[in-house]
């Protein structure tokens, strides 16, 4: 009982404290490629602290939706975090929890889009429209990947799926394809290059950043923290495909988790440094191509016999 409580606290502590650092790692990597020094590693923490200490500026057009959304979005992400195994099995796990995982993310997206439409700005509407369209296309590959995982491991619980023990087939083609596909989903869901440019300064070309233009103060802080949490969850999920959680609980395992997620963060930084943003009309094609990758993984899993 005590150890269960300890594990829950550990899991929550990781979810609450660690995610912002990875944005710093991505920024450092990009700065390295650009030959700059870059912001400090802990810059996002400073930003969060600053935002939480501020007051707010509200749009006169907005209703209560813009107030409601950050809380809902953050709680969907925290809940999704509770379903995801990080070091061992997740605090909440049951058969079919991967469906809840996917739908919680969808719920968060629903309210992000509504909050963007709440202020009646054409730019935010633009971002909302793109988010809605691209995430619908991204859903195709995401669910196909979930099916593949479910068939591969004969389980529909994320905790059980990533419990490989010593039998993990690291470089099995299906696993590698799934890794690629999840990496693309990660880039889409978190609005990274080449889908969206998080650093752009032109409202017309943004997706995620433009949806939160009218947020300020603590609400913006919640959204910023939510974004880092979402990025962390997807990085942990993607990394777990090739390097599954060990199933043990200790400082060594936490270090292992941080190392592999940091590895993914560096890869994202590299991708963002060497790739330019795709034209918006090309993005659905990329996402449908991702569906093809996952379908291939499924075929390998089904026809290739047991792993």
């Amino acid at each position: 009982m005590v150890s269960e409580l300890l594990k829950l606290t550990g899991h929550l502590a990781i979810l609450l404290l660690i995610p912002p650092i990875f944005l710093g790692i991505i920024a450092k990597t990009k700065a390295f490629f650009a030959g700059r020094k870059g912001p400090p590693l802990l810059q996002v923490y400073y930003d969060l602290f600053k935002l939480f200490c501020k007051g707010g500026v509200d749009s006169r057009s907005a209703s209560f939706m813009i107030r409601l959304a950050p809380g809902i979005v953050l709680s969907t992400l925290l809940m999704a975090g509770l379903l995801l195994p990080l070091l061992y099995e997740a605090p909440i796990h049951f058969r079919g929890d991967l469906i809840l995982f996917a739908y919680l993310l969808a719920l968060g997206r629903f309210f992000t889009i509504l909050a963007a439409l709440d202020v009646g700005s054409s730019f935010e509407g633009m971002g909302a429209s793109r988010e809605a369209a691209f995430s619908a296309f991204s859903e195709l590959a995401f669910f196909m990947a979930l099916v593949t995982l479910a068939v591969m491991t004969q389980s529909t619980s994320l905790s059980h799926i990533f419990q490989w023990g010593n039998t993990h087939p690291t470089f099995h083609p299906a696993v590698v394809l799934l890794f690629i596909s999840f990496f693309l989903i990660l880039l889409t869901e978190n609005s990274r290059m080449p889908i969206d440019d998080p650093n752009t300064h032109l409202e017309l070309t943004m997706i995620h950043e433009v949806m939160i233009l009218d947020y300020s103060g603590p609400d913006l802080g919640l959204i910023l923290y939510g974004a880092t949490l979402k990025l962390f969850l997807f990085m942990a999920l993607t990394a777990s495909l090739l390097w599954p959680p060990t199933g043990l609980f200790g400082f060594q395992e936490i270090g292992y988790l941080l190392a592999k997620v940091a590895g993914i963060a560096v890869v994202i930084g590299v991708v963002e440094s060497v790739k330019s943003r795709l034209r918006l009309s090309k993005i659905p094609q990329l996402l449908v191509a991702n569906l093809v990758i996952t379908t291939l993984a499924l075929l390998i899993t089904v026809l290739g016999g047991p792993i």
Binding site: F52, K54, G55, G56, V57, D58, S59, R60, S61, A62, R67, L68, P70, G71, I72, L74, S75, T76, L78, M79, V119, G120, S121, S122, F123, E203, L213, D214, G217, P218, D219, G221, L222
Partner: peptide, 27 residues
């Protein structure tokens, strides 16, 4: 339950802060 807790905490952060109203940002 989590949603209610997070929502309330989010509101709590605004206690004692000023909230100004302004026009929607349109570049």
């Amino acid at each position: 339950g989590l949603g209610i807790v997070v929502g309330l905490l989010g509101r709590l952060l605004y206690r004692g802060r000023t909230i100004r109203h302004a026009v929607t940002w349109d570049c």
